[in-house]
Design a protein around this nucleic acid. Structure first.
Lengths: 237, 237
DNA sequence: CGGAGGGTTGACATAACTCAAACCGAGTGG
DNA sequence: CCACTCGGTTTGAGTTATGTCAACCCTCCG
């Protein structure tokens, strides 16, 4: 997974990658972005917030970012995670409709949206590519909806882990070792569960021998096949 | 809500409308579509299915359509509903990634995707508009995720009803009278609940005097303010 | 009249939430 | 080096909303 598949990035259960397009955008944006200075963000620092004027597109150089919406009563829905190479802030128009907050210390470059739009307005190909990329993000968002709606805690967590593993090397083998850059609270707010349920589910998976948890933020996937089965709704555990 | 905000159409809790763009696309597509013959679809008939080659964009002339994904084990996640004026099949590339099925007898026009792409490739403005429209759909999909993840049955149903009411006259007053074109099962699969819970929740809302249910497919919103409060997570009922 | 497809209602089971306590590892300061 | 704190995590006990299963109702339609 590369460029522009940012916003709900952590989530691609079933959508095939299409590197060609992203690459092309990547390059175009890269040209502009490479000149921009990288800014550092501390953990919990906001890159942008809901309601902020959407002036820039950002690319994560290092670290990690969560994207979320807040509800009236303080509940939080995380819509995705963005990692190095991902772009965020792209779909927005006028105002940002979500918050972007660093979950690990991050280096991030910004490019004015106006420039991008100026280029895009003259370049149908870039523009069309932009369109298709957003379409892919849309597909990803829908994948998440499918994972989130209607499914048990084990299914959600298993699917989450598998997606993280896949993310590490799109197209290639899923990684065995997954570092969770986010807290249990982040995972909970992403999957629509509570931190306790996340924790319990992980220990249950560990007890079942499907994963190992050498540290709380480090997961080793021991039985991908079974995890996959669980993610797809198979019984048991 | 008009053109192109189709796919997850039923859902715009907080995204503002931007008719200008949709209108512009609407017109461009309309030019092509008006020449196309309208085909009739019976209830439960598929317009397209997951995996079908994505050759056309469709506009609903009359009736209603549900858009959904199927899981391995038969569970179904409805991703949205499309109504007259809505376009479906737009984001797809290569293959359709979901199913579109009539939930009411429908008249639907099709336009070859190739034509649209041909036009778009030469017309940066149309293209940019396409991009922005998809971006809005993305926003809508995220709104749904927010509504679906983490929330109680009452909250979801209340939000659902309000959205249906708003849909009737975007920008204007929400309708008091809402006809449910979909079955309880459809609503359940949309909101990630069961038909029994939908039914119970509706009767609870009726008992509370917030809505009336003269027929099972007809809802009258009696207390929009309170419904809104519920949708936003207020206690009680 | 009878059957089928939806919808409602009830009794019961259970997965997930809530509240609460304890744990752990990483910093920090004495 | 140890004691302390703090944020995050784990675990337990008890509650509850929602799912499950089953019966029944209603309406439409042949």
């Amino acid at each position: 997974m590369t460029a522009l598949q940012a916003i709900s990035s952590a989530y691609y259960p079933s959508t095939p990658r299409r590197p060609a397009h992203s690459e092309r955008i990547g390059r175009t944006l890269d040209d502009c972005l490479s000149q921009a200075p990288a800014r550092r963000f501390d953990v919990k620092e906001f890159i942008f917030a809901e309601g902020d004027p959407a002036n820039h597109v950002y690319r994560i150089e290092s670290g990690a970012v969560s994207l979320f919406r807040l509800l009236y009563d303080g509940r939080r829905q995380i819509l995705g995670f963005a990692y190095p190479g991902d772009y965020i802030g792209l779909g927005a128009r006028g105002e940002h409709i979500m918050n972007a907050q660093a979950i690990k210390p991050a280096r991030i470059r910004a490019m004015p949206l106006a420039s991008l739009h100026r280029i895009a307005a003259k370049d149908p190909i870039l523009c069309f590519t932009l369109y298709q990329s957003i379409a892919e993000e849309l597909a990803a968002a829908r994948d998440l909806m499918v994972t989130t709606g209607h499914r048990s805690a084990v299914e959600r967590v298993a699917a989450f882990l598998i997606t993280l593993a896949r993310r590490s090397d799109p197209g290639g083998e899923p990684a065995r070792l997954v570092d969770l850059l986010m807290t249990r609270a982040d995972i909970a707010d992403f999957l629509g569960l509570t931190i306790e349920t996340i924790s319990r589910t992980l220990t249950k998976l560990k007890a079942g021998g499907l994963i190992d948890l050498p540290q709380s933020a480090r997961v080793i996937l021991l039985d991908m096949v079974e995890l996959q089965r669980l993610a797809e709704g198979a019984e048991s555990l």
